[in-house]
Design a binder for these strands. Structure first.
Length: 665
DNA sequence: GAGCACTGC
């Protein structure tokens, strides 16, 4: 079997901004600021260590300036001459904002000496010496070049967050470093930067690399515990906020960590209500919710300063833990709870569960009270309860379906998945489940070793869950890529429908015109087409309860998927009026997510015979089709199927004859 | 008849 290469495309190049001109004054100020950063005294030591050693671990608190300065130090020490200095970030915004900042410090155009590279946006050039990028982006590059030859230094920043991508990069970078050494290539220097308490774990993994500690610029935060365990953390949060409100000066804002949208909205209503009935001499209170699903304009309100004399109370999810920082926070109220995704390999079921945070996470939250001056953190736990929390959060790689991860590893030509050098190995069972799933999709085969089939190699080129990559490749044979690309793109973004609690009926009525008796996938196609027909017109979106930001994201993703198809010589073809063929293609990837109607009118999944129900938001909710496929299963009050399509039983058989061999029907 | 944290390619 010949392994055919599929090159992994990089994002489109963007032109430089030619309007970034620096006045000498601000340039000088920036240079002075660089010298006054707490990290500056460690400059020489850091450079020496990197010159002397292959791997260095840097532990630094927030505010040390490590992310902006260390790449510059290394470039100034000559590492930019022999290759690029890369610095990876878990989030896009971080990569973009840090690169912008650093290019200003160097007084150069963004994209010239200093640039960034994130999905849909490459701001680099041949001259770029310092490149900030998302960790996912570097991982994509590694598929095309496992030795990462263009880099002289790779800095893995925010390593303590342990995202799946960072975790895989650990192994990939370590292997690249070793192989470059063995083949007498230019050495690859690796720097791991973390705010972790888990220093030994990192050092052990990276061949006992030495650890450098960097001083930060964080103000002291006083930590308070409750005297008694709290049965109701929401009520406890409410009481604590009003205690602070009574005692503290009104300009001191409060940040409360909660678990989700509904909890936040309910508590916000209660708080406004109580604040309204407070004695009139008390300072007023502005309550602002903050969570990712909130429309951007509403999100911005959380960042606006409250009117003079009133206090701002922000009720946030863990979006405020890492993704955004809010000025003026003096008090943090930590419920000690978080909503977390959990995957059970035995049932293949994903669920979201509310659980206690880890100590590391609690400290991260605490730090949010000490950004500008000293503050206070109220933990709604007793000190004993806190001591019993887990030390760190379980890394994501041990909590999710690994089908994508395994496909990526195989694309990186790592064949012995079970023996991959994970910093924390996922459960053997999870890896086997993933391999089996890929096998069923026709992505892997076992010769002497497990390897990708030509189909699997093509699938790996798509930034998608393997099931959806398969759907696209099936669409090629059924000549309906046009429609399938749209549906897959729409499934890749957050919900395009939004339903305000107060206008539920109106939203449902308006939505009827997009509905299809074939299911939600066809409905998504209808919505996308309608959106395009009106060119994303804002008032239209409002009237139709469509989230325009999310549909726009879907358009970007569709564009990327279309470009990938072009590279793989998959023609763009439309099914015309034939919507059945579209559902046939969906079945080729989603046959593992299939359910059948029972005599009693209930559904069970075909494979695991597990009782499931149609989600009430589905357009098939009132219908009882014999066979359905679905995009995902979500466990809440029941086990619900989301995003369904009606299918013919034969399509399932045809999609995976072996899988359904022992079927009783 | 129900409500889903957060990222990323």
């Amino acid at each position: 079997m010949v392994e055919r290469e599929v090159d992994i495309p990089t994002p489109k190049k963007r032109k430089y901004h030619h309007n970034v001109s620096m006045s000498p004054v601000s340039g000088e100020t920036l240079r002075r600021e660089r010298l006054s950063l707490p990290i500056y005294p460690a400059r020489r030591k850091i450079i020496q260590q990197v010159q002397r050693l292959d791997t260095v671990i840097l532990i630094g608190e927030t505010g040390s300036g490590k992310t902006t300065q260390i790449p510059q130090y290394l470039m100034e020490a000559g590492f930019g001459k022999i290759g690029t200095v890369a610095c990876t970030q878990p989030r896009r915004v971080a990569a973009v904002t840090v690169a912008t900042r650093v290019s200003k410090e160097r007084g150069c155009e963004l994209g010239a000496q200093v640039g960034y590279c994130v999905r849909f946006d490459d701001m680099t050039s041949e001259n770029t010496k310092i490149k900030y990028m998302t960790d996912g982006m570097l991982l994509r590059e590694a598929i095309g070049d496992p030795l990462l030859k263009r880099y002289s230094v790779i800095i893995l920043d925010e390593a303590h967050e342990r995202t799946i991508q960072t975790d895989i990069l650990f192994g990939v970078v370590k292997a690249a470093q070793k192989r470059r050494k063995q083949s007498n290539l230019r050495p690859l220097k690796v720097i791991v930067m973390s705010a972790t308490m888990d220093v030994d774990h990192f050092s052990q993994y990276f061949n006992r690399a030495p650890v450098l500690y960097l001083e930060g610029r964080q103000h002291p935060v006083k930590v308070m515990y409750t005297m008694e365990p709290q049965e109701d953390y929401i009520y406890a949060a409410l009481v604590t906020v009003f205690q602070i409100h009574q005692e503290a000066p009104p300009q001191e804002d409060v940040l409360v960590f909660l678990t989700g949208q509904e909890e936040i909205e309910t508590l916000a209503r209660t708080m406004r209500d109580i604040a309204y009935h407070c004695p009139s001499d008390a300072p007023s209170m502005v309550v602002r919710p903050l969570y990712a699903a909130l429309p951007p304009t509403a999100q911005l309100k959380a960042f606006e300063a409250a009117p003079t004399g009133s206090r701002k109370v922000i009720l946030a999810t863990n979006i405020a833990e890492t993704s955004v920082t809010i000025k003026g926070i003096k008090h943090v109220v930590d419920t000690g709870m978080v909503k977390q995704r959990l995957f059970r390999p035995t049932s293949g079921l994903d669920s979201l569960v509310v659980k206690k945070v880890s100590k590391a996470q609690a400290w991260q939250r605490t730090g949010r009270a000490g950004r500008e001056s000293s503050g206070t953190c109220y933990r709604l736990l007793t000190e004993e309860e806190f001591e019993q929390l887990a030390q760190t959060t379980i890394p994501e790689i041990q909590r999710v379906n690994l089908a994508s991860v395994v496909l990526q590893l195989l694309a990186l030509r790592i064949h012995d998945i079970m023996e991959f050098d994970f910093m924390d190995k996922p459960a053997r069972e999870s890896l086997l489940t993933a391999l089996q799933q890929l096998h069923l999709l026709g992505a892997v085969e076992k010769q002497k070793q497990v390897q990708l089939t030509p189909l699997g190699r093509q699938m790996a080129a798509f930034p998608l869950d393997p099931r959806f990559a398969k759907v696209i490749l099936a669409a090629k044979d059924h000549h309906c890529t046009e429609e399938i690309l749209t549906i897959v793109a729409m499934l890749s973004v957050d919900s395009v429908l939004f339903t305000p609690a107060s206008k539920r009926e109106m939203a449902a009525a308006v939505r009827r015109k997009f509905m299809s008796e074939e299911g939600d996938h066809i409905m998504l196609l209808n919505i996308y087409r309608a959106f395009k027909a009106v060119k994303g017109n804002r008032p239209w979106c409002q009237e139709n309860f469509i989230n325009s930001r999310n549909v726009s994201n879907a358009m970007d993703i569709r564009g990327q998927l279309r470009d990938l198809c072009q590279r793989l010589q998959i023609p763009l073809e439309s099914a015309g009026q034939d919507t059945a063929v579209i559902r046939t293609c969906l079945a080729k990837g989603l046959f593992m997510n299939a359910a059948e109607l029972q005599r009693g009118g209930e559904y069970i999944t075909i494979e695991t015979r597990q009782p499931v129900a149609i989600h009430p938001s589905s357009c098939l909710f009132q219908c009882k089709p014999g066979y359905v496929i679905f995009s995902e299963l979500v466990q809440t009050t029941k086990c619900y199927m989301r995003d369904l399509s009606v299918v013919d039983q034969r399509w399932l058989q045809e999609a995976a004859p072996n899988y359904f061999k022992q079927d009783r029907t």
